[in-house]
């Protein structure tokens, strides 16, 4: 399983696009926001936590259709399904690799982009914490969506349609925590809910994803 993690990380680094693309998308989205809502710094400061969360979510979504589709096309998934490691574990590892290559860079980049959007000083810490706790759920839900749509030609759009409604609770709790943090309120409740959501996703979704993947490989 470590071999699988290392392979996925190496592929993400080598294939170039996968690693940097999500970050670049996040940056561009953040830059476009002031153009669309106007440059008033108070307005930007108010909406900054929500925009940054939405941007991170969309950047996560961007790389999902490559998550399993490439392995499906070159036959690796057939071999993985017959390999001695359990498919549930393999999928959890793929989710982890996706989080390391997509979620983690977003968490690190978010404060820098917060400066662009005039995020209030109190918000930086909570923004990073909420993203750190919430992005694993985004990656695991993404693995489930990718496993559902892996056999479908041009399933990318369908994948977004299926995954985005599933992202709703994560987005609500994550953005709420960041917003409360930025406003100087106590963000403990949404953070706890967010953590519970992430842990639940990590614990249960690999099973649902591997069930879906086996159905697709039949």
């Amino acid at each position: 399983m470590i071999a699988l993690l290392l392979r996925d990380l190496r592929l993400a680094l080598r294939a170039g696009g996968g690693f940097g693309l999500g970050l670049a998308f996040f940056l561009i989205l953040t830059v476009l926001v002031p153009f669309s809502v106007g440059p008033q710094s108070t307005l930007l400061g108010t909406i900054a936590p929500g925009i940054l969360w939405l941007g991170a979510l969309l950047a996560c979504l961007l790389s999902l259709d490559r998550l399993l589709a490439l392995d499906f096309e070159d036959g690796s998934l057939d071999v993985l399904a017959t390999a001695p490691i359990p498919l549930e574990g393999a999928l959890a590892v793929k989710g982890l690799a996706h989080w390391i290559t997509t979620g983690l860079p977003l968490v690190v980049a978010a404060p820098a982009l917060g400066v662009l959007l005039n995020l209030p000083g109190a918000g930086y810490g909570w923004l990073v914490v909420s993203l750190l706790l919430g992005t694993p759920a985004l990656s695991m839900i993404g693995v489930f969506g990718a496993a559902l749509t892996v056999g479908i030609k041009r399933g990318g759009l369908l994948l977004s349609l299926l995954v985005l409604p599933l992202y709703v609770p994560t987005l609500i709790f994550g953005a709420e925590a960041a917003r409360r943090g930025a406003a100087g309120l106590d963000p403990a409740t949404p953070l706890l809910m967010l953590t519970g959501l992430s842990l639940g996703c990590i614990a249960l979704l690999p099973f649902a994803a591997s069930a879906a993947l086996r159905m697709n490989l039949r």
């Binding site: 592929l11 080598r14 294939a15 096309e73 036959g75 690796s76 071999v79």
Partner: peptide, 13 residues
């Protein structure tokens, strides 16, 4: 060990 039409090789490795 199952070997199908596709080779299971990664182009970038």
């Amino acid at each position: 060990a199952y070997g199908a039409h596709a080779d299971g090789l990664k182009a970038m490795l």
